[in-house]
Amino acid sequence: MSDHVLTVSGLTATAAGKEVLTGVNLEVRSGEVHVIMGPNGSGKSTLAHALMGRPGTVVTGGSIKLDGVELVGLPAHERAKAGLFLALQQPIEVPGVSVRDALVAAGVAPEDVSTTLVNEAEAVGLRTALLDRPMNVDLSGGEAKRNEIVQLATLRPAFAVLDEIDSGLDVDALGSVSRRIESATKEWGLGVLAITHFQRLLDELHADTIHVLVNGAIVQSGGPELAKELEATGYATFAK
């Protein structure tokens, strides 16, 4: 079991020139499942992209450290090599490039990639024929999300940021995706930071910690009971 730590401190960032993150602090360790909830426009996706290093999402202050190594300033592929993975809310269509090709280019051993991909696709109920098709092209929302998890499980990162992985998934798919993520937390100690709007994912993933993100900062953190409270009262009580 690995023992890594992802530490975000005082993170401020702009997206498209607008200040979105106003000071985010959190720490995720190997094997832990953290969930970020928050109203629309609170900065959840910006946080995901700031962590991964999307061009256009500009970190203006603070730090993101993985095992003490500063990620701010590193391009996305180096953050990935350092052990970070982002499952996108809307996976990008890449015509002419299959998942298989992409993962081999990412460094997965060509002799292992087929077996691993097929196993992982079966684990989340993704048709294996899609593995040789262009990434996300003409995939349903649910297939694209399962495809993200197949990539995650094949690359075996230390930490995964899941941006609304539950949207577009039906109940059964949400179950199999959640079980795969949960088993990864034990299998290789995957640390998870999941962004969601829904209680259901928290339950399925058996989240350890809930963070409430409002106006670009985490205003409260707590156990699963915090989500129940949110469900009852909404975000109004947290708004500044």
Binding site: M52, A76, H77, R79, F85, A105, A106
Partner: peptide, 15 residues
């Protein structure tokens, strides 16, 4: 396409 580039690079593929 910048989004395609970012997506693939976020998988650890060099530019």
């Amino acid at each position: 396409d910048e989004d395609q580039r970012y997506y693939l690079e976020s998988r650890g593929i060099s530019p």
